[in-house]
């Protein structure tokens, strides 16, 4: 894929801008981040997007490498997160997609946004509902990942009990409204939707923040 080049007012600040690059001010206006935080995220994005394929776009293998230190390890949940970050569904995460999606993981982001994102994560087949079989599939995947052993009947019991709490209209699947009610009563179910690192992103990547020309 090709790359476009742009430069700021100073030639020494010239930087390569990958396909899908969007101006930090635009992204800051749409997300939980400040302009300097978006710039710091661009430093992170560059690091990830050149880790294997050197094209300035985050591929699934690079996403896995960042999470697991290996590009080979398949993981149902990581692959679901990648799929949802890839808003254009073109197989890569562009910078704007990266920032907009990470914004939902900001500790200060709206709980309703986190709940909506998690709902899409768990709606494996994209039917608009979380079905009992999907939930069972995810519990089994987690058990496989963690080497924990539970009998089939124990898994069924856990899934049935959860559905008995969440499926208030008893139709065997969870709709977005039932899900939102469920997470209000069980906020720990959204624990994976907050990333404390995002509160200190300019501290985590101080080199870029130091050079930023933008005042927030």
């Amino acid at each position: 894929m090709g790359c476009a080049w742009s430069s700021s007012s100073s030639p020494s600040r010239r930087q390569r801008r990958a396909q899908g690059y969007e101006e930090p001010a635009v992204l800051a206006a749409e997300t939980s981040f400040t302009v300097s935080e978006v710039e710091a995220l661009y430093e992170l994005y560059n690091k990830l997007s050149y880790s294997i394929f050197k094209d300035g776009l985050i591929h699934k293998e690079e996403f896995r490498l960042a999470l697991f230190r290996t590009s080979e390890r398949a993981n149902l949940f990581a692959d679901r997160v990648f799929h949802l970050f890839d808003l254009k569904r073109n197989g890569v995460i562009e910078f704007g997609e990266f920032v907009r999606s990470l914004s939902i993981f900001h500790p200060k982001a709206l709980v309703s946004d986190k709940a909506a994102f998690a709902f899409k994560l768990y709606d494996l087949r994209g039917t608009g509902y979380i079905e009992k079989e999907e939930l069972r599939e995810m519990v089994v995947a987690l058990l496989d990942e963690s080497d924990l052993c539970l009998s089939d009947s124990a898994v069924d019991e856990i899934v049935d009990n959860t559905f008995s709490q969440a499926d208030t209209n008893g139709d065997g699947r969870l709709d977005p409204r039932e899900w939102e009610e469920f997470v209000k009563k069980n906020p720990t179910s959204l624990r994976n939707m907050s990333l404390p690192y995002l509160q200190d992103i300019t501290t985590t990547f101080p080199s870029f923040a130091t050079h930023s020309e933008v005042n927030d």
């Binding site: 992170l44 990830l48 960042a66 999470l67 697991f68 230190r69 993981n75 149902l76 949940f77 990581a78 692959d79 679901r80 997160v81 990470l102 993981f105 768990y122 939930l135 995810m138 519990v139 995947a141 987690l142 990942e145 963690s146 124990a154 019991e157 856990i158 899934v159 009990n161 959860t162 709490q165 469920f182 997470v183 069980n186 720990t188 179910s189 959204l190 624990r191 994976n192 990333l195 404390p196 690192y197 992103i201 985590t204």
Partner: peptide
């Protein structure tokens, strides 16, 4: 058991994006 299935799956390492922020 009173375990909540969504609490269980939220523990997946696949959701732990903090790896992106750590130097390898």
């Amino acid at each position: 058991t009173n375990l909540n299935a969504f609490d269980i799956i939220s523990l997946s390492s696949g959701f732990d994006l903090s790896g992106m922020f750590e130097d390898k």
